[in-house]
Structure formats: C-alpha cells, structure tokens
Simulated assay, not measured.
Amino acid sequence: MSRMLLRDDQWARIERLLPGRTGGGGRAGGNDRLFIEAVLWIARTVSPWRDLPVEFGYWNTVYTRFARWSERDSWQSIFSVLREEADFEEVYLDSTVVRAHQHATGAAKKKGEQALGRSRGGLTTKIHVCVEGLGEAARFLLTGGHCHDVTQAEALLKDLQPGAVLADKAYDANALIARIQERNAKVVIPSKSNRKEPREIDAFQYRNRNVIERFFARIKQFRRIATRYDKLASRFASFFAIVASFEWLK
C-alpha cells in the first residue's frame, strides 16, 4: 500500500467539506478519503495519472473526478473554508516562478489564457501568494512568469484588513503603499535603490518575511507544484489549492 498523508484528525476536518456528485442518481463518489489520498499522491510524486497505484482505484476514474472538481472550483472551495482560520496581524506578499514542462503547452486557445509566459529560461508560470501570520496561504493567483509581482498585489490584498504588510523591494510602488496606508496598515517594504527619498522601515520586523520563503519551500516538496505539468491553468491552480489546504491541516 502506498504511503498515505492524511491522519484521522485531518480527515475529520475536511470530510464535511467534500462535494458529492450532482445530477442523477448513484453513489456520491466511492471512498472519498482514498480519492483525496490519490490526488495528494499525484501532487507529491508528479507521476503520470496512468501510473497511479491500483490500490487508489482505476486511474481514469480518479482523474475524471479530479477534473470535475476542478471545473466546479471544488478544490478552491475547500481551501477557502480552511483559510478562515487565518491571522491577518501580519501578511506577506511574494511570488515564485515555476518552470513549465513541455507537456504543459498546447492548450486549445478556446480555453483562454493559461498563465504561461516566455522568458530566457523558457515557459514559466508565476504563483503570487499572500501568506498570513501563521505561515499559510490566504490567497493566491497565477500569471505568466513575465508578470511583475506588484501588478497582483492589490488583488491579493482585496478585502483584507491586515495590521502590517511585509514584502520585498519588488513591491515598492507609491500606488500600492498608498493603498496599504489607506487600510491603516503598517508598510514594511524596503525602498528600491533608485527611490530619491528612501522610506524608513522596521528592519527587525522585516526579518519575519522569511515566513513566506519557508512556505514556498514546503509546498515545493510536492513536485507537481515545483514544476508545472498541467496544460490548463485551472488544473494547476487546483493542485496548488489542495496542497495549500493540506498545509492548513498540519
């Protein structure tokens, strides 16, 4: 039997959050816990779906169900409930660039923008994340790897009322700083070298920014996050949502 990841107490926390099949009769989807374990196995090992161990069930059945949940935003819904425990006394903004495998290309144009960008390193996807005070993801967005970090900052902070916002120099922009100050939040963002009048920051508090770096290090232990293999951005986002949810369960 393949190594399982979910403890009994973790399963008890998410069991009630799982959607059943809608429309028509039949069972609600078999062994839900085994299905979640199967998706986590794929995320952790980055094996092709066809190589899914037989104890998890027929690979195509598992994949089809995963895809159905992805289309319905079910993975994001689970993540949204778990992140309700977030502590917004401090929030951390940053992004990480993920190399796209050649299998991640070729999505039909009718599927829309797939969050892929071309740079000297090839095709990449950038994951923009807002991490809360407990060190877990509170919100995330996907863009092409060429997209500048600061362009997604306001979307990550939307509707939040943090006590302080910590980020690196990439987020040193007057418009963003003004938006943060309008929230009566403390700005802990160092000035760029070309700023005529550098702002003072709390250097001691800025040291806490390594919280988001540690978050990226943890989620990239799931190899499906460290490298993008999915053609559709929605599928890749679903994998990120389930891994971020798993982090909330620890």
Rank of each mutant, 00 (worst) to 15 (best):
S119G: 15
R120C: 13
H128R: 01
V129A: 11
V129K: 02
V129E: 00
E132A: 03
E132L: 06
G133P: 00
G133Q: 03
L134W: 00
G135L: 08
E136Y: 01
L141K: 08
L142D: 10
T143H: 06
G144P: 07
D149C: 03
V150A: 06
Q152K: 01
E154V: 04
E154S: 08
L160H: 09
Q161C: 02
P162M: 10
A164N: 05
A164P: 02
V165G: 12
L166A: 06
L166K: 03
L166M: 05
A167D: 09
A167H: 10
D172K: 01
D172S: 00
A173Q: 07
A175I: 01
R179E: 08
E182V: 07
A185H: 07
K186P: 00
V187K: 10
S191P: 11
K192I: 10
S193L: 14
R195C: 11
K196T: 13
R199N: 08
I201L: 03
I201D: 04
D202N: 15
R207E: 11
N210P: 05
R214T: 13
R218Q: 12
R218K: 14
I219P: 03
F222K: 09
F222L: 14
R224I: 12
A226I: 12
T227C: 11
R228L: 10
Y229H: 15
K231D: 03
S234C: 14
S238G: 15
F239K: 07
A241E: 08
I242S: 09
